[in-house]
């Protein structure tokens, strides 16, 4: 799967890039720049072979939010330079400008991380964090969470169905529906909690707390290109921020 050159990069390389995008669009106060950044992300997504998925995620998670954010700035952002009116609202130049800037930034930053997670396996990212000093127990907790969530979702559906057949109402007024909440959630929580003791025993049986440095079958490759790119993104981000602060002060 990692035959694609972009996806084959080290997780930290990709993560540094997302941070670079974040720093860049905050440092450069131009919505055109930020929207251009989004266009660049589209190109990268295409090159990584995840364009479709990336675009679907952006549509699903960002579009509605961006519209609301934009309208709220346009209608309510305080300003004097009136450019029009609609119903009871006055539209100002300041509102328009801020709306464009804010939405362009949210779009660029949000998309950068959406892209990051489309081209990075979470398992690899956690491993990279572990290499950087995240305690193994922390890595365990994150990975185990990823496996437990779908498992508990499945169980909650099972319990909910069982409650329905026992006559617990899941339709009707809010109060009626609310009454189905606890009988579904409580048994799920109690059985999950009860299982932690045996899980702890399982882990200790596998030497989980042995006071030695763990080894790992799963290793990440960090090539020279990763080191180079990380340096480049870091320098780029720092340079932009320094430039921005300098402009601001002078």
């Amino acid at each position: 799967m990692a035959t694609n050159a972009i996806r084959a990069l080290h997780p930290m390389t990709k993560f540094t890039f997302a941070l670079f995008v974040t720093a860049a669009v905050i440092a450069v106060p131009s919505y055109l720049f930020a929207y251009a950044m989004f266009a660049a992300l589209l190109v990268i997504a295409a090159a990584a072979g995840v364009l479709r998925e990336f675009f679907a995620f952006v549509l699903k998670t960002l579009v509605v939010l961006l519209i609301i954010v934009f309208l709220m700035q346009l209608l309510f952002y305080p300003g004097d330079d009136i450019i029009g009116g609609w119903w009871v609202f006055t539209l100002t130049q300041e509102g328009l400008a801020y709306g464009l800037l804010l939405t362009s930034r949210i779009l660029a930053i949000g998309s950068a991380f959406i892209l990051f997670f489309r081209i990075t396996e979470v398992k690899d990212f956690v491993k990279a964090l572990e290499n950087m000093g995240l305690p193994p127990a922390g890595a365990y907790v994150v990975l185990s969470t990823l496996q437990i969530i779908p498992e508990m979702r499945r169980q909650s559906n099972v319990i909910m169905d069982a409650q329905k057949t026992r006559g617990v109402e899941t339709e009707g007024s809010v109060l009626v529906r609310a009454k189905a909440f606890l009988p579904t959630l409580t048994p799920l929580i109690l059985s999950a909690i009860a299982s932690t003791e045996e899980r702890a025993i399982t882990l200790e049986s596998r030497a989980f707390s042995a006071p030695v440095n763990k080894t790992s079958l799963h290793t990440l490759e960090r090539r020279p290109i990763d080191t180079g790119l990380i340096a480049l993104f870091t320098i780029g981000a720092v340079a932009l921020i320094v430039w921005r602060v300098a402009v601001w002060i002078l």
């Binding site: 049986s205 596998r206 030497a207 989980f208 042995a210 763990k214 080894t215 790992s216």
Partner: peptide
């Protein structure tokens, strides 16, 4: 199956 050995720091 490898998990326990990883925890014991056995070489890969």
């Amino acid at each position: 199956v490898a998990f326990g050995l990883e925890n014991l720091g056995v070489p890969v």
